[in-house]
Amino acid sequence: GSSGLPPGWQSYLSPQGRRYYVNTTTNETTWERPSSS
C-alpha cells in the first residue's frame, strides 16, 4: 500500500487514539512520522 512511510515502518493507533510509528526491523517506536530520507 501507499502509506508514504519508509520501508520497515508501520503506523498504529494507541489506545488513546494517538498515531505512532513502529520500525518492524529495529522495534523502534516513535510519535514522530519517520522520514524516508
Rank of each mutant, 00 (worst) to 15 (best):
G1S: 13
G1Q: 12
G1Y: 07
G1L: 13
G1H: 13
G1A: 13
S2L: 11
S2I: 13
S2A: 13
S2Y: 08
S3K: 10
S3T: 14
S3I: 14
S3A: 14
S3G: 14
S3P: 12
G4V: 10
G4I: 10
G4W: 12
G4P: 14
G4H: 10
G4S: 11
G4Q: 11
G4M: 10
G4F: 10
G4T: 11
L5P: 04
L5Y: 03
L5F: 03
L5H: 03
L5N: 03
L5I: 05
P6H: 04
P6Q: 04
P6M: 05
P6W: 05
P6V: 04
P7A: 11
P7W: 10
P7H: 10
P7C: 13
P7F: 10
P7G: 06
P7M: 08
G8H: 07
G8R: 03
G8P: 09
G8N: 08
G8T: 04
G8W: 06
G8L: 04
W9E: 00
W9K: 00
W9Y: 02
W9G: 00
W9S: 00
W9I: 02
W9L: 01
Q10V: 15
Q10N: 09
Q10H: 11
S11K: 03
S11A: 12
Y12L: 08
Y12S: 04
Y12V: 07
Y12E: 04
Y12R: 09
L13H: 05
L13P: 02
L13I: 12
S14G: 09
S14R: 01
S14Q: 01
S14H: 05
P15L: 07
P15R: 08
P15M: 07
P15Q: 07
Q16D: 15
Q16M: 10
Q16R: 10
Q16W: 08
Q16I: 07
Q16P: 02
Q16E: 15
G17Q: 03
G17E: 01
G17N: 05
G17K: 03
G17W: 02
R18H: 09
R18A: 08
R18Q: 11
R18W: 07
R18S: 07
R18P: 02
R19M: 13
R19H: 06
R19N: 05
R19G: 01
R19T: 11
R19Q: 07
R19F: 10
R19S: 04
R19A: 07
Y20G: 03
Y20M: 05
Y20P: 00
Y20E: 01
Y20F: 10
Y20S: 01
Y21G: 00
Y21V: 00
Y21R: 00
Y21M: 00
Y21S: 00
Y21N: 00
Y21I: 00
Y21F: 07
Y21Q: 00
Y21D: 00
V22Y: 12
V22P: 00
V22R: 08
V22Q: 05
V22H: 08
V22N: 01
V22S: 03
V22M: 07
N23K: 04
N23T: 00
N23R: 03
N23A: 01
N23P: 00
N23W: 04
T24Y: 08
T24E: 08
T24L: 14
T24N: 08
T24M: 11
T24W: 09
T24H: 10
T24I: 13
T25H: 14
T25K: 13
T25I: 15
T25W: 14
T25S: 12
T25F: 15
T26V: 02
T26M: 03
T26L: 05
T26N: 05
N27W: 12
N27K: 11
N27Y: 08
N27H: 13
N27Q: 11
E28A: 06
E28Q: 07
E28R: 05
E28H: 05
E28N: 04
E28F: 07
E28S: 04
E28G: 02
E28D: 05
T29V: 15
T29S: 08
T29E: 07
T29Q: 09
T29H: 13
T29R: 14
T29N: 05
T29D: 02
T30P: 00
T30Q: 11
T30Y: 07
T30V: 10
T30M: 08
T30I: 08
T30K: 06
W31P: 03
W31F: 11
W31L: 06
W31S: 05
W31K: 03
W31Y: 10
E32T: 11
E32N: 08
E32Y: 12
E32P: 01
E32I: 14
E32H: 10
R33S: 07
R33M: 09
R33F: 13
R33Y: 12
R33W: 09
P34A: 01
P34M: 02
P34H: 01
P34I: 02
P34R: 00
S35F: 11
S35Q: 12
S35N: 12
S35L: 13
S35K: 11
S35V: 14
S36F: 15
S36T: 12
S36A: 14
S36Y: 14
S36R: 08
S36P: 11
S36D: 12
S37D: 14
S37Q: 13
S37A: 13
S37L: 13
S37G: 13
S37R: 09
S37T: 12
